[in-house]
């Protein structure tokens, strides 16, 4: 009799303690997959930059930076793309405004290093001196202008 009571208590406790979707797919809470997949994205989802920035597109699409995504240099900008009037196109960490100067920003990729691939264009500080890179280079088409 005691054994049957034990078995009944075990199953009763199991119903209470084990989450409803646990074991539906495997040894985990099946619901959790949907919860993680449903998290909000923060980096721009669609390539809508050129709906507005037409001049930049014309320059970028034929330049050496054409394989570099807008987000690489300008940051996440999801909010800006959704509401450009309310949110400026500046990112706290990834945009040029996050760096002390334009030179620092350009050198964050193009600074000289022994570890970078040889074919990658690297610029020594001597080359730029105290000049702003933008005096000679258009960042959307850096070699062609």
């Amino acid at each position: 009799m005691l054994y049957f009571a034990g078995v009944i208590i075990f199953f009763a406790l199991r119903v209470v303690l084990v989450p409803p979707t646990f074991g539906e797919i495997g040894w985990y809470r099946a619901e959790s997959v949907g919860e993680i997949a449903g998290l909000q994205t923060k980096i721009g989802e669609e390539f809508r930059c050129f709906d507005c920035h037409i001049t930049e597109y014309a320059e970028w699409s034929v330049g050496e930076h054409r394989n570099v995504s807008c987000e690489s240099c300008h940051g996440l900008l999801k909010l800006h793309a959704e509401n450009p009037e309310k949110y400026k196109g500046y990112d706290e960490f990834l945009s040029p405004e996050a760096f002390n100067s334009t030179i620092d920003f350009c050198l964050s990729c193009h600074g000289e290093s022994i570890s970078k691939p040889e074919h990658f264009p690297q610029i020594s500080v001597k080359h730029s001196k105290s000049w702003d890179c933008l005096n000679c280079h258009n960042p959307h088409n850096p070699v062609g202008s």
Binding site: I43, E71, S72, L76, F93, L94, S108, C109, S113, S115, K116, P117, F120
Partner: peptide, 12 residues
């Protein structure tokens, strides 16, 4: 052979 160590991936 293409990585330049810019760290943008870490930030993003």
């Amino acid at each position: 052979t293409k990585c330049i160590g810019c760290g943008r991936c870490v930030v993003a």
